[in-house]
Design a protein around this nucleic acid. Structure first.
Lengths: 204, 204
DNA sequence: ATATAGTTTAACCATTTGGTTAACAAATGT
DNA sequence: ACATTTGTTAACCAAATGGTTAAACTATAT
């Protein structure tokens, strides 16, 4: 029987690398620290992944492949705009509570290395706005929702959902909340945010 | 006559350090690169700022002291909620277009070093939500706007304004825009975002 | 049993990096 | 004019860091 990911060395390395890279970033991460966390010799990292860069890319692609399907849900699903917003908001916030470092990690590293995203864009499954655009334009011209471009609406949805996690320390300081009450604020947002968006675009 | 900031060495160092730290972060920045950018010997960095950590802190505090007044504008001004949102959105986006790396830098470094914000919180002039809370609660109970907590409204305002700059490479990839059309998208948001927020909270 | 291929380790290496030193140059005060 | 403080440089240093090597150990196949 094939060993499960967390008993074989390669998987242990990836898990440790995830944890270190996602909290410290490419530049802040140390190969020795990853090896220590995985409980193995540093040479093993190079045996399985050749270099820090390649290990990092493995972690990054893995992280991105978790995020992309969440976004495709809102872009390519067949439900109504209103349902999409409701579902996405609720699902997405649950998702991030499970992977708190993920959006920050992706954003930080994409800012550091602009070329990186070009590689990702070629992948099938990379989020594409076309269908969503058509849907938004349709609903606007039918008069179901107020005029708004699909791009701006999409940016707003992402912003309202992702930002509070990315800027957590900053927002916690401003709102004077501790970890526990911040978590509650985020729970509240599962419905708060979708209401906020829908209020804004629906006609009265 | 005292030399202006950009002719004296100390100021040149700070300028160079700003540019390097804000694009590469604490971990990615190299003292030699800062010295080269400032056009001086590396030993000068230590002569004026003692250590990388202290030089970094000088840059960080400087950056934060630019951001804080922008936020206080929305929190402590005497205008109506609607005016605040309009002005803040328009001003803030202009502000960031002038300092594109600033919000990302602050968020990234605060995530890296959680203790850091505690030092800032003690400073007078650190954004405080109390007055804004009172105003929002007032307008809600008077029935001028729909029920919403001041914290959630504040988070939403920050999110809609800051996020598109922080996550620029990601959003550019999703929306398939180049630098020029992204800049246009951001210009449009100066009014787009405030309409979006006001639509959402106003009563009909 | 024995050869073979895959896995793991300790020791090592070259380079990078933040920081220091000692000597030198330029102001500044007396 | 000269002494003292301030500013600047090149050379240097120790520690950290990504990566390599050669030997040892383990599993697998014949």
């Amino acid at each position: 029987m094939k060993k499960t990911k967390d008993e074989n060395t390669e998987g242990q390395i990836l898990d440790a690398a995830k944890s270190i890279f996602q909290t410290k970033g490419m530049d802040g991460a140390r190969m020795q620290e990853i090896a220590d966390k995985a409980g193995i010799n540093k040479a093993m990292l190079h045996y399985y992944y050749r270099s820090k860069q390649l290990l990092f890319e493995a972690v990054f692609k893995n992280a991105f492949s978790l995020l992309a399907p969440q976004l495709n849900a809102i872009l390519n699903d067949d439900s109504s705009i209103e349902d999409k917003i409701k579902n996405f908001t609720s699902n997405y916030i649950s998702f991030i509570i499970k992977h708190p470092y993920l959006p920050n990690f992706i954003i930080q590293e994409l800012n550091r290395n602009q070329d990186f995203i070009l590689k990702l864009k070629d992948n099938k499954g990379f989020p594409n706005l076309e269908k969503f655009k058509k849907q938004v334009n349709d609903e606007v011209s039918k008069g179901h929702i107020k005029p708004i471009s699909a791009e701006q609406l999409f940016i707003n949805i992402l912003a309202l959902n992702i930002f509070p996690f990315v800027a957590k320390p900053l927002v916690m300081a401003f709102t004077n909340t501790d970890d526990k009450s911040y978590k509650q604020l985020m729970e509240d947002r599962k419905t708060e945010v979708s209401n906020f968006i829908i209020n804004s675009i629906k006609k009265h």
